[in-house]
């Protein structure tokens, strides 16, 4: 019953979020600010994770399929497929749910407990739309860029680790990266990314918007935002994979 209550209230909140904005120019300005806060400021952690994860994927692939029967380029191929299909869109989104989701829930939750959301409502502002819509648009627009950067850096990290340790030649790795490339997997990854971005922004905003109490409750909302975003991302990942790849 509790789950149904939250699902119902979540969709009602989304109805409010997507109702007509008061001033488009103000919403757009806020969207650009959110793109900077939620997207550009996540570039550092995304880059670092991608580089090292690509390196680890390459080394582990090489050590696990070290057989004369398997061509060298398979390492590059595996690194590319793992990165594009799963690591960049899903794992990075899970990481972003932690970083961005907690930021969103804490910001909106603090506004709620300090009566700032009430102040917006009293002024006649659609507080749900004003606070949440720019975050949804910002993450849905900026996360695909982050994920594409992550893809390149992860594959580059694999190349770097492979060639620096000498476990694979540069040409074999690049051959593997280019081998049997189907651009649809990038489309699939980007569709997942946009869906996950919307999940992160909406689930976290929901948790923040309905915070009640004080600073302790803001912390609890932030934690819930991360946990529930992760759970929904994992469920959506399964559903989308089944829908788009089978």
């Amino acid at each position: 019953m509790d789950l149904l209550f939250h699902i119902g209230r979540y969709f009602m909140l989304m109805g409010e979020v997507f109702s007509k904005p008061e001033r488009l120019s103000i919403y757009w300005k806020r969207t650009v600010e959110e793109m900077d806060l939620l997207g550009v400021k996540s570039l550092g952690i995304v880059s670092l994770l991608s580089l090292f994860m690509g390196a680890v994927i390459t080394i582990q692939t090489k050590t696990n399929i070290d057989s004369p029967l398997i061509p060298q380029y398979v390492v590059g191929f595996t690194a590319r497929q793992s990165t594009i299909l799963e690591f960049s869109p899903t794992i990075i989104s899970l990481i972003l749910a932690g970083k961005v989701g907690s930021t969103i829930a804490a910001e909106i939750g603090s506004m709620r407990v300090r009566e700032q959301i009430d102040a917006l409502d009293i002024m006649g502002v659609n507080s749900a739309g004003y606070l949440i819509l720019p975050k949804i648009i910002a993450t849905a627009l900026i996360n695909p860029f982050l994920i594409v950067i992550s893809m390149f850096l992860s594959i580059f990290g694999g190349w770097l680790a492979g060639t620096l340790t000498g476990i694979i030649s540069s040409s074999s790795y690049i051959q593997g990266v280019q081998y049997d490339f189907d651009s649809y997997i990038v489309v699939y990854a980007l569709i997942k990314t946009v869906v996950f971005a919307i999940v992160i922004a909406t689930v976290s905003s929901y948790q923040g918007y309905y915070t009640s109490g004080g600073t302790r409750e803001v912390g609890i909302s932030s934690t819930k935002a991360v946990v529930y975003s992760d759970v929904v991302i994992l469920i959506m990942n399964y559903l989308l994979t089944q829908m788009l790849l089978l």
């Binding site: 102040a119 009293i122 002024m123 006649g124 502002v125 659609n126």
Partner: peptide
């Protein structure tokens, strides 16, 4: 919302 634009509130 229209009416609320005519309301001022000090919290």
């Amino acid at each position: 919302r229209q009416l609320r634009q005519e309301i001022g509130m000090l919290f």
